[in-house]
């Protein structure tokens, strides 16, 4: 089969859909570490299947359908005992996750707003958590606190951000 190199428009679309794809994969896998690997593999497959995309159709939905198979492949490798959802629940969830992931842009804006509202100390802690290689233990050491207390604060920061985003999106209503 003759395969042509994806054009610039395809590349633009692929770049634009990365956040949405990551959210889709992350929600179905329920696992932070897996999401990067599955996203990378999905991008490879999308690139290889570029000629199968039909212009004029929803690129994001097509990309999610490809990523769905990559999530299934990851689940197979992972083994049942360490998965959050069984196959039936995953099937139920996939369609809902895909349609919600289309709101990625609204969600990003709401999140940015909520991060700006965070008290500086919490914001600093969140920043530290995302420094490459910065574990909870290292943060605890730097801030002279226990690892358990850092973890507890991080749970609460994540929960507070989610509360804020939920309120923010509810206020705006459906797009």
């Amino acid at each position: 089969m003759d395969r042509t190199t994806p054009d610039g428009e395809f590349v633009q679309r692929l770049i634009a859909v990365q956040d949405r794809l990551y959210a889709y994969i992350f929600s179905l896998a329920g696992d932070t570490n897996a999401a990067d690997d599955v996203l990378q593999q999905s991008n490879i497959v999308l690139w290889e299947k570029a000629d199968q995309f039909r212009p004029g159709t929803d690129f994001g939905a097509w990309a999610c359908s490809v990523a769905h198979y990559e999530v299934l492949a990851w689940r197979k490798k992972r083994g049942r005992d360490r998965l959050l959802f069984d196959d039936r629940a995953l099937g139920q969830l996939a369609g809902e996750v895909e349609s919600f992931s289309a709101q990625a842009n609204d969600l990003r804006l709401a999140l940015r707003h909520c991060v700006e509202l965070m008290p500086p100390r919490q914001r600093k802690l969140l920043d530290m958590r995302y420094v490459p290689g910065m574990t909870v233990g290292k943060i605890a050491q730097q801030l002279a606190r226990s690892a358990a207390s850092i973890s507890q604060t991080l749970y609460r920061i994540r929960a507070a951000l989610a509360d804020c985003v939920e309120r923010s999106l509810a206020k705006e209503g459906p797009a």
Binding site: D19, Y22, A23, I25, F100, A104, R108, L111, R158
Partner: peptide, 8 residues
């Protein structure tokens, strides 16, 4: 999960 993914 979508919020956490976006945060990441």
């Amino acid at each position: 999960m979508a919020t956490q993914a976006m945060l990441e």
